[in-house]
Write a protein that binds this DNA or RNA. Structure first.
Lengths: 211, 211
DNA sequence: AAATAAGTTGAGAGTACGGTCAACTTATTG
DNA sequence: CAATAAGTTGACCGTACTCTCAACTTATTT
């Protein structure tokens, strides 16, 4: 469906696109904390124009990473299409971590969750698929029984920090971190866990809180 | 051994102590990024005095957390005194994570390593003990063969991020994260790892690089 | 009780950031 | 080709932080 809003003037559209692609590059290289003035300067427009198109930083971040939600949903669906449920889970997590490792901005994003964008249907799609990836792996007997979707946050947070720390020295180090965690997720590795899983609403609150 | 430098004037010593304890409290509550002016103001001295005692932020951080190195060394030695090597390793990691969970400043510190203080003999003591904790657990057959001391960094980084994210909502959530990682560290869970461990010099470089 | 050394003060310089807006320029429309 | 709406500009405001220094105060020494 075409957007309901009237189209931008063509120079405005050009500037907007310029800002998004410039921000994408700067975010990818240096993380989400690049100054907005620098983005505008690099894009060759004034800071006023940036604020005109994106009143808050979160708006720009959302525009830059809008397609990522769909990308993750596609990865999840591809994982579900794999024959082996465990291999599907591993594939999904590896691909998502690769996205993180390839883009410091995205790595910041999954770890800190700046934009509280309203959950789209794309979001719901990805969420559904992730639930099914986990259920399937659990039912197959490969994934431990006591692990929940919310536990995947530990994995994301952990590898995000490792990606950040090791990017300059050993860009693939996160694969080792992930593999160690995966070995802890197997049913055969399971020992009783000391703390109940995060409830969905708790995780939602954590995400909302940014930081 | 008493310090070689001439003793401070007594009011100077009082101000210095005041600054350190104030900084300790503020760091613990709000992390390492508290403004130095605020620390001075809270301590009831002028900012000039703060900069007189601690020319750089790192100097203050070092003074605040100077004893932590020894604390960790003691925890490690206590872990080594335990009969069961695996239990010793678990105990060590749990205690260190408890330190992180109890102090946001320390959590920042282990995760970002601000001060490049010259490694003291206390450092060496802790390091030695950690090596022995791991060796002992490995030789007992409980810890997987292919895991190194450098791999513990993944654990520290990961739980640090989890502690940070979950502190407000579920302060004990890190225990679950840690338990999942521990299950991946058992010899019985071991599957081939996809990436060689970080070399000691690589880890050192990562630490040096701050961030 | 001077004399001297040690330490403190707080205003302010310098920097960087997010954000605003009246004046200006450009695209589109009839 | 006006007329008008849309968009841009960049100087400027406010804020927050690090860091400095000349004038001042306090402790210590003889």
């Amino acid at each position: 469906m075409p957007p309901r809003t009237k189209p931008l003037r063509k120079d405005a559209q050009r500037n907007r696109d310029l800002l998004v692609t410039t921000a994408r590059e700067l975010f990818a290289a240096r993380g989400l904390d690049v100054s907005l003035d620098e983005i505008a300067r690099t894009a060759g427009v004034s800071s006023g124009t940036l604020y005109n198109h994106f009143p808050e930083r979160a708006d720009l971040v959302e525009a830059v990473f809008a397609d990522r939600v769909a990308t993750v949903a596609e990865i999840a669906e591809h994982a579900l299409a794999m024959a082996d449920p465990w291999a599907g889970l591993v594939h999904f997590l590896e691909r998502v971590c690769e996205l993180q490792a390839a883009d410091r901005g995205y790595n910041d994003l999954v770890s800190r969750r700046l934009p509280q964008a309203p959950p789209t249907e794309e979001h719901a799609r990805g969420y559904e698929s992730m639930v099914r990836i986990l259920d399937r792996a659990r039912e197959s007997g490969a994934l431990r029984e006591d692990v929940t979707l919310e536990d995947m946050a530990f994995l994301t947070w952990g590898t995000a920090r490792t990606v950040e720390a090791t990017a300059a020295v050993r860009p693939q180090a996160w694969r080792r971190h992930l593999a160690l965690m995966l070995d802890g997720l197997r049913a055969t590795a399971a020992r009783p866990l000391p703390e109940p899983p995060l409830r969905p609403d708790e995780l939602a609150e954590i995400m909302r809180a940014c930081s």
